[in-house]
Design a protein around this nucleic acid. Sequence first.
DNA 1: AAATATTTTTAGATGAATCTAAAATAATCT
DNA 2: AGATTATTTTAGATTCATCTAAAAATATTT
Lengths: 218, 218
Amino acid sequence: MLSYAEENYLKAVYHLSDSGQHAVTTNAIADVLKTKPASVSDMIKKLSDKGYVSYKKYKGANVSIKGAKAALLVIRKHRLWEVFLVDKLDFKWDEVHEIAEQLEHIKSPVLVTKLDKFLGYPRVDPHGDPIPDENGEIVIGKKVPLTEVKMGKQVIVTGVENSESDFLAHLDKINISLGSKITIKDINTFDGSMQIDIIGYPTIFISKQVADNLLVTE
Amino acid sequence: MLSYAEENYLKAVYHLSDSGQHAVTTNAIADVLKTKPASVSDMIKKLSDKGYVSYKKYKGANVSIKGAKAALLVIRKHRLWEVFLVDKLDFKWDEVHEIAEQLEHIKSPVLVTKLDKFLGYPRVDPHGDPIPDENGEIVIGKKVPLTEVKMGKQVIVTGVENSESDFLAHLDKINISLGSKITIKDINTFDGSMQIDIIGYPTIFISKQVADNLLVTE
DNA sequence: AAATATTTTTAGATGAATCTAAAATAATCT
DNA sequence: AGATTATTTTAGATTCATCTAAAAATATTT
Ligand SMILES: [Mn+2]
Ligand SMILES: [Mn+2]
Ligand SMILES: [Mn+2]
Ligand SMILES: [Mn+2]
């Protein structure tokens, strides 16, 4: 069984590698876990021996299939507990991370199942991040233009309809990128422009033209 | 801050000493914690150095005021989580102990406060054990005869009105003792006799005479 | 390409919590 | 009381996760 520390390392590797897309450096892991590179080398070697990460000395680490699955089950618990804390206990979305960081390590598969049911099978956590299913799979919803989304619903930017560089530059300027979590606060019916919240940035206005070309999920 | 292990030891000492009433032997602690006496000696010495237990070599250990308070806050969390698991997640009362054993160590005072509120400030856990308040105090309710209790309510036997030995012997015979958790399942109005559940034993019938002389709390 | 700087790994140490085996103390039994 | 048995403590070892300091590998700069 994985220890607390092992689970935290696995999660860090998974996230830093963009869900397993590329290898992760020792220093980067040390950084997010607030530990020293020497400790990371030790732990990565251990996780490699156990088959949870692939690792070549001096070349960084990445999660294996087994490692990604384990990481995703911890992430699932983390996000379900965050939903519990916000929806049921009235925490604010910015107060729950540290507590979920502890709760994610509770070992009991049936607890996770029952918690998921109790919460009504949520698909995203309070920060808009998707909740993996019981097999560690992230069910990605269909991509739709932001103009098709109802007011108030939180969505994640997962693509663009138009890839011209001046459009992309504009998105950059207004702090929208792949993965941004957006909530529509208001829609002006006469011109289709809208007021949106982007998590981490001030509320902004965008034109219908921009909204039409932004693909979002959930 | 107390470690996981330290909290478990403190709780064991607290319970084995009957809430601090007497000293506890090394072997007894090793027994309940499924560890070896040598480990207990080490840990008790550490807790003694930190002021959580009083301890004289070869003479056993007991919780200090500070230790009892710490133990009671862990017990509070344990029992609140048990209520959560049974009331909200639909666990059976005999399935929750192991999970609560993990959850009791989550560190976040505000989480406990909010959980308590969410659960409606329960005063007993699913096993009928009292839940200490935020100061680690167990608020003992008034003692009333069992005949004054409403059907369905779970109560704890905390005394007797009549101390004659044949009454006490009778209680013994039907497995009722101080601390027994009783739920009234049915009351026969014509003679005041009742059908009761005693946790850990089969359902039994008792006469109004017995119920009148049984003092219960909660 | 050589020198320099950065990153990563190894070596060796520490603290926490555990264990086994042996020594010390206390309790029980002729 | 003296011998035997049981309990408890100490001594020394182990595992886990961490650290610092030094060595090795890689990357960057001149
Ligand atoms: Mn964590
Ligand atoms: Mn989150
Ligand atoms: Mn515990
Ligand atoms: Mn209980």
